[in-house]
Amino acid sequence: MDGERKAVMRVRDLEVSFGDNLVLSDISFDVYEGEILVILGESGCGKSTLMRHMLMLRRPQGGTVHYGDLNLVEASENELDRVRRDFGVLFQSGALFKSLTLGDNVAMPAREFTKLSEETIEELVSLKLEMVGLGGKQNLMPSELSGGMQKRGGLARAMVLDPKVLFFDEPSAGLDPVTSAALDHLIITLNESLGITMVVVTHELPSIHAIAHRAIMLGKDRAGILAEGTPDELRNSGHPRVNAFFHRERLEENGAA
């Protein structure tokens, strides 16, 4: 990567709590244009929570999240709606609307936000479905698709309006290694060919090595960001918890802290 990378999103001092329970604090990092940034960490460290707060599905208790010049934390709902059209999100379960066909699901953002004709939208839908390997399946209902296919369907919907930033919430969760590797490959291809910036939340080591340009690792117990860098840098970092994560080691409870 070149030295003068442009930050698309800037997160500063993010603080999140549920009631009295402080979940994230001291989170600061940048997302650079065109990169695949992986947010990783042990189960329960707040990875998905962090993503939900970058998308403002819930407002954080402190800190700022800038997209371009706009501070999303203080943005109005209308401003957020506008910004979100630059975003695409693949939820853990795919989150396809169960009452619509796959084709209608993918077509939905296009129908809502563009003045494209129905014929063009249909072409667009089959194009995107083709991209994620679901060509010809537009008339199936989500319930007729396997878990992996639902996820790819969700990805097609997330990409239909060519988002600038794509978010993935645990893309390989619940998928077998082969399907998961195929999805990783799809993510890399999309990033390289379309130049979409991607933020991926995951804890799957093979995925991290396969796709990440850069990774940040969250600590447990609101320890903030433990380490930041390329997967190789993280693997060789001196931090015992980061080490244990990357080498799949058991961590003795007392040894690490």
Binding site: D81, Q92, S93, F97, F113
Partner: peptide, 17 residues
């Protein structure tokens, strides 16, 4: 059911209220 299967979140992030 739509809420717990993240469909409402999906709507929101698409910019659909």
């Amino acid at each position: 059911t739509q809420k717990i299967s993240e469909e409402i979140d999906a709507l929101t992030v698409m910019g659909l209220k």
